[in-house]
Each structure stands twice: as C-alpha cells, then as structure tokens.
Design a protein around this nucleic acid. Structure first.
Length: 200
DNA sequence: AGGATGATCGTCT
DNA sequence: GACGATCATCCTC
C-alpha cells in the first residue's frame, strides 16, 4: 500500500523544464465516487513560454486560460474529440506554459481503471495522455483545479526514487518537433511512444 | 514491431 | 471549415 498523502505546497519548481523533470516519480491520485485510483508519473513533456508547440503560443483563449494563471494548476483539454490531456501549468502568473503528463505506472485502483478503460492489459491502462485521463476519470470539469489543494485530484510523494531520466523529442507535434522536451524514466515499461524514441 | 486509417468534436480562423 | 500534445483497429513484415 502506497502512502498517498498530498505533497505540501511549494515543493515543486515553477520553471517548465525543471517541473517536467521533477514530476517524474510523483504519484497522481484521483478520488471519485467510483473509488481511489493512482499512478506514478513516468513520462512528461514541457511546453515552454514562446514555444510554437505550446497551446499558449497564440495567446489566451477560452480553452487555454489556465496556462496563463499561477503555476501547478490542472490544465485539461480535449483532443481529437475523443481524448483528454492532463497538464500542470508552469511559470509565474501571467506567463503561458505547462507540462503534459504522458504516462503513469498504475499503483492503486487498477480494477477501477480497468473498468473505466474497458481494457485488461495493465501495461496499456495509463500508457498515453488520453489513456491516463480515461483511467483516472479526468475531464474538462477538472480544468483549473489546484492539485495541491483539491479533494479529488492531488499529487503524492514518490514511493521510490525515480530511475535515470532521459530526454527525447516530443510526440505527436509538428511545431518545434526537434526540441528535446520529453522526459521519461529509462527502462520503465509504462512509458508511451514508439520504441525508437527510447534509445538504449 | 511498426505503419496506415478512421473516428469524432471542441476550438479557433 | 480546418485542425489537432490521441486511440483503437487493422494490416504487413
């Protein structure tokens, strides 16, 4: 049984790349009427201020407003009409940037997650940004909440020290695709993406 | 293991 | 009207 108590405020860095790296190993916890579910963050992507791939690049809008607010708020958006993506805002109030959480290693509530996803495979439960949102029951209703103070969505301490963290290109984008802003725990089988993006 | 394809809809031009 | 920070499925090697 993992200790799922929330981490204290001000433990996380605000700078985007530092946050993306620091989040590896922390546990994302979701409580709802269906029960408790949680997974260890094993893969993130940084979307920097002034980054053409960042949703904030073209300015504030109805969708992306959270990115321009204070750091460490949940930015949840829908993509391709079918999936949601979970991010944490980063940088000081007024600067638009964030970190996408791309994959979790399932820790608690596996049966709840299986039911939500309608998938048996443990490996595929939370491997991918849309899949992890589905597994944890995260949608736009959680856009803007503060995971350092929210009763149904929060971050818990790393249950063990993260392994070696590697970088690669970000997945699924066209703008600034060459930048090495994807962070993942080396060798972890719950990391998403084609094998070629996980060099030896 | 890796490539191609269609689904699907909120958001912004 | 066009376009996704995706996914499931189907195909070939």
């Amino acid at each position: 049984m993992t200790d799922l108590r929330r981490i204290p405020p001000r433990e996380l860095p605000e700078e985007t790349q530092a946050l993306a790296r620091a989040l590896i190993g922390y546990v994302l916890v979701r409580w709802s009427a269906e029960g408790l579910a949680a997974g260890r963050i094993v893969e993130t992507e940084a979307y920097l201020p002034g980054d053409p791939a960042c949703h904030a690049f073209t300015g504030k809008s109805a969708r992306n407003g959270v990115l321009f607010g204070p750091p460490h708020r949940a930015y949840v958006y829908q993509i391709y009409g079918t999936s949601f993506c979970f991010n944490l805002s980063s940088e000081i109030d007024g600067v638009g940037a964030g970190v996408l959480v791309r994959a979790l290693e399932p820790l608690e509530g596996v049966e709840i997650m299986r039911r939500r996803r309608n998938v048996e495979s443990l490996r595929d439960l939370c491997r991918g940004p849309g899949r992890l949102c589905s597994a944890l029951g995260i949608d736009r209703r959680l856009d803007g909440v503060d995971p350092l103070a929210h009763p149904e969505l929060w971050l818990a301490a790393a249950p063990r020290p993260p392994g070696k963290i590697r970088k690669s290109r970000r997945i699924g984008i066209r703008q600034a695709a060459y930048r090495l802003l994807r962070f993942y725990e080396a060798g972890n089988p719950f990391v998403s993406g084609p094998a070629r993006l996980s060099p030896p």
